[in-house]
Design a protein around this nucleic acid. Structure first.
Lengths: 151, 151
DNA sequence: CAAATCCCTACTTATACAATCGGGTTTATC
DNA sequence: GATAAACCCGATTGTATAAGTAGGGATTTG
């Protein structure tokens, strides 16, 4: 499986968010600088995550973003689907409504694709954002260089 | 999950091959016409399947392609990986050796990707080419229009 | 040797994605 | 109520991949 940079950035941003003190905001600028993410690109990503109900925002001086829910309540499949579109076949990513490829697929292949997609979703559902953040923390503590978060 | 047209064609071609009398060859030209696949594109695909050891070829008059093994011995993961490259992360598709994205991925995300990839491979391994061909046949017999194979 | 068939390499075109830019609007503070 | 910090949004550009094209070369059989 291959994740787009956009999705990688979304995951990085949310792991960062999960490790931020609860209820406080973080700013795009700082997140972008610490993680080497282009600021404008990150704006776009956080907007999509907000529309998906994963983060919320506060505007104005001292504003920023924060998680909309507890990290335990955010499945990684949600994050990935918020950015890349649904994993399961019926709908085509990002609102494109052209003539469905399903009709063209032979029944056997369609079934293969559907079952595999369900396996992907199940695998992604086994991990929440809290799990990712915890594992990230542990890896950092084990001394593997991880120069990103909180200096 | 999304399959490229190339992979769809590969699967169609192999299902066709599996339903062909064992030990006899089929020709690109006929396969292409009956399945609506561009002939030149199909040549390319069959060549790759041959290099992957899934089909063999015979040249000259009366030549053609045939399966290199029994359909029960061909896992669908093999087919898909022959065309799209490995499913599991460590290697990058199609021999590209640029600086690995693994290093850039945070450990938690890398693990998520790896486990998901393994789930994909496991799902694909549950089906062999024989299963696909059988299901295709049954669907055709149930009257769902399937104008492709053997008229 | 002529015809049928696969074999190989390179080229072309269309689309998606990554990333950037430029300019807004809203809100909080002083 | 002016200013600054942050969010909001559309247009644009460069690159990679997908999908298909083109044309000739190599082999085998009648």
């Amino acid at each position: 499986m291959r994740l787009s940079k956009k999705t990688e950035y979304a995951l990085k941003a949310l792991i960062y968010a999960a490790r931020h003190p609860e209820g406080t905001t973080f700013q795009i600028k700082e997140l972008a600088e610490r993680n080497g993410i282009p600021k404008k690109f990150l704006e776009l990503i956080l907007l999509e995550l907000k529309n998906a109900g994963i983060v919320q925002s506060r505007r104005g001086v001292g504003g920023g973003y924060l998680l909309a829910r507890h990290p335990e309540a955010v499945r990684s499949s949600e994050i990935i689907e918020a950015i890349e579109g649904p994993v399961v076949p019926p709908k085509v990513p990002k609102g494109r409504e052209r003539r469905l490829p399903r009709e063209e697929l032979s029944p056997a292949v369609f079934r293969l694709v559907r079952e595999t997609s369900e396996a992907i979703e199940a695998a992604l559902n086994r991990w929440t954002l809290a799990d990712l953040a915890r594992e990230e923390q542990e890896a950092a503590e084990r001394g593997q260089r991880n120069p990103m978060y909180f200096i």
